Amino acid sequence: MESEIMGLFRKSTDEKNINKYKQNGLSFNYPNNYLIANIPDNCPECKVALAKDDGKCDILIEVSEEKINYQKNVFENAYINYVKNLDGFFEIESIGSLGNKKPCFITKSYFNKNSLDKQEIVKSVIFFDFNFKNPIRIHLNSLLKDEYDCMNDLKIISKNLNYK
Results as ranks from 00 to 15, higher is better:
residue 87 D to S: 14
residue 145 K to G: 02
residue 118 K to Y: 01
residue 74 V to P: 00
residue 91 E to V: 01
residue 87 D to Q: 14
residue 68 I to L: 10
residue 79 Y to E: 11
residue 143 L to R: 12
residue 146 D to M: 07
residue 118 K to R: 02
residue 75 F to P: 02
residue 100 N to F: 13
residue 73 N to C: 03
residue 156 I to Y: 03
residue 116 L to T: 05
residue 138 I to G: 08
residue 101 K to W: 01
residue 110 Y to C: 09
residue 90 F to M: 11
residue 146 D to K: 07
residue 69 N to P: 01
residue 110 Y to M: 11
residue 158 S to L: 07
residue 84 K to I: 07
residue 151 M to T: 12
residue 103 P to W: 12
residue 150 C to W: 11
residue 127 F to Y: 14
residue 140 L to T: 01
residue 85 N to R: 13
residue 83 V to D: 08
residue 126 I to V: 13
residue 84 K to N: 15
residue 109 S to Y: 10
residue 159 K to M: 02
residue 127 F to T: 00
residue 153 D to P: 11
residue 155 K to L: 07
residue 121 I to T: 09
residue 144 L to I: 05
residue 79 Y to W: 14
residue 125 V to K: 09
residue 148 Y to T: 01
residue 139 H to S: 07
residue 127 F to V: 00
residue 70 Y to G: 03
residue 100 N to V: 10
residue 81 N to K: 04
residue 75 F to I: 05
residue 153 D to N: 12
residue 97 S to K: 11
residue 92 I to H: 04
residue 79 Y to S: 04
residue 68 I to N: 10
residue 71 Q to D: 06
residue 80 I to D: 09
residue 80 I to F: 11
residue 125 V to D: 13
residue 111 F to I: 10
residue 118 K to L: 12
residue 147 E to S: 15
residue 155 K to A: 13
residue 152 N to M: 06
residue 71 Q to M: 11
residue 74 V to K: 12
residue 87 D to M: 06
residue 139 H to M: 12
residue 99 G to Q: 13
residue 72 K to R: 14
residue 147 E to A: 15
residue 78 A to D: 05
residue 105 F to M: 04
residue 101 K to F: 11
residue 147 E to R: 15
residue 81 N to V: 03
residue 91 E to T: 08
residue 68 I to E: 06
residue 67 K to S: 13
residue 89 F to M: 07
residue 116 L to E: 08
residue 121 I to R: 03
residue 109 S to A: 12
residue 107 T to K: 14
residue 110 Y to D: 09
residue 133 K to P: 00
residue 157 I to A: 04
residue 142 S to L: 03
residue 141 N to F: 09
residue 125 V to P: 07
residue 74 V to M: 06
residue 91 E to W: 14
residue 134 N to R: 15
residue 91 E to R: 13
residue 73 N to T: 13
residue 143 L to T: 04
residue 87 D to C: 05
residue 102 K to G: 02
residue 78 A to R: 04
residue 128 F to Q: 00
residue 108 K to G: 02
residue 88 G to S: 10
residue 93 E to G: 12
residue 127 F to D: 03
